[in-house]
């Protein structure tokens, strides 16, 4: 327990917010961590959302997406980082590549399984009232599966935040740096401080996503879908979807 207290003590030492061991202080490390996460996330969204919408809407390529997610789970992050950083040199690029590779599968899975969870009869109804495929996608499928979509984004973001921490082993940036240097220097207050900050960052981001998930669900679609509730995809209650649909279709 002493080490936890020491960790908090380390965090609340004012000087550590400007500089730690002549390196960047906590404020800058948090900013680095979020900045790298955000850059990776932009690419992840640009790639995974269109792809997921395509797979979910057409049902094509699902096998590939599932295989990709299984492989990405099996591939050790640390090994990928080591290879790419050696190959591309230390810097933002190799880390971003690894983060994007690891962030795509969870978001992709959230998007396509979200679309799959929409009741087929609802989609048929939308088609029957004359909506175009694009309208069906944007006005029916996406709103009805928005909770799972955001859930995928949430999983991807947390995956990236955790990986940025690990990446500090090789690159030194972000909050993982304090854990790595703390272990290396046997400075357990710094190590624990870093671990607490990383955990806090992940939990805060997770909490924000939970809030967003709560607010984006359109009226009439009952909730009860959180990030890991996606395990019950298909169980999204479709109560009142027809009402939503009629409203949307008008």
């Amino acid at each position: 327990m002493n080490v936890i207290l020491a960790g908090f003590g380390w965090i609340f030492t004012a000087s550590h917010w400007t500089t730690v061991n002549l390196g960047p202080g906590i404020g800058q490390r948090v900013a680095e961590h979020l900045f790298i996460t955000l850059i990776a996330l932009v690419f992840v969204v640009l790639i995974a959302v269109p792809l997921g919408l395509f797979i979910g809407h057409t049902g094509k390529g699902r096998t590939i997406a599932i295989a990709a997610s299984n492989i990405s789970r099996a591939l050790p992050t640390l090994g990928l980082l080591a290879v790419l950083i050696l190959f591309l040199g230390i810097g933002l690029l190799p880390i971003t590549v690894v983060l994007v590779l690891l962030g795509i599968p969870p978001l992709l899975a959230g998007v396509y399984s979200g679309l799959e969870s929409v009741d087929r009869t609802t989609i048929d109804a939308a088609r029957a009232v004359g909506m175009t495929e694009l309208q069906i996608l944007l006005k029916v499928e996406v709103p009805l599966s928005i909770a799972l979509l955001i859930g995928g984004l949430r999983a991807a973001t947390l995956q990236i935040i955790a990986t940025v921490a690990v990446a500090a082993t090789f690159s030194g940036g972000g909050l993982g740096n304090y854990v790595i240097s703390g272990v290396a220097q046997a400075d357990y207050a710094q190590m624990m401080g870093g671990a607490i900050l990383i955990t806090a960052l992940a939990l805060v981001v997770d909490g924000l996503f939970a809030l967003v998930q709560r607010f984006v669900v359109p009226r009439g679609v009952s909730r009860g879908t959180s990030r890991r509730n996606t395990a019950r995809a298909g169980a999204i209650p479709v109560v009142a979807t027809t009402r939503t649909l009629i409203k949307e279709g008008q």
Partner: peptide, 29 residues
Amino acid sequence: LLTAGGILYTIPSLALFVAIPVIIGGAIL
């Protein structure tokens, strides 16, 4: 149980690896 599981799963691995000894009181490494 699912909320607790969700929170624990959210903790990044690097942080959890170094936090465990503190919680169970073992050696750090």
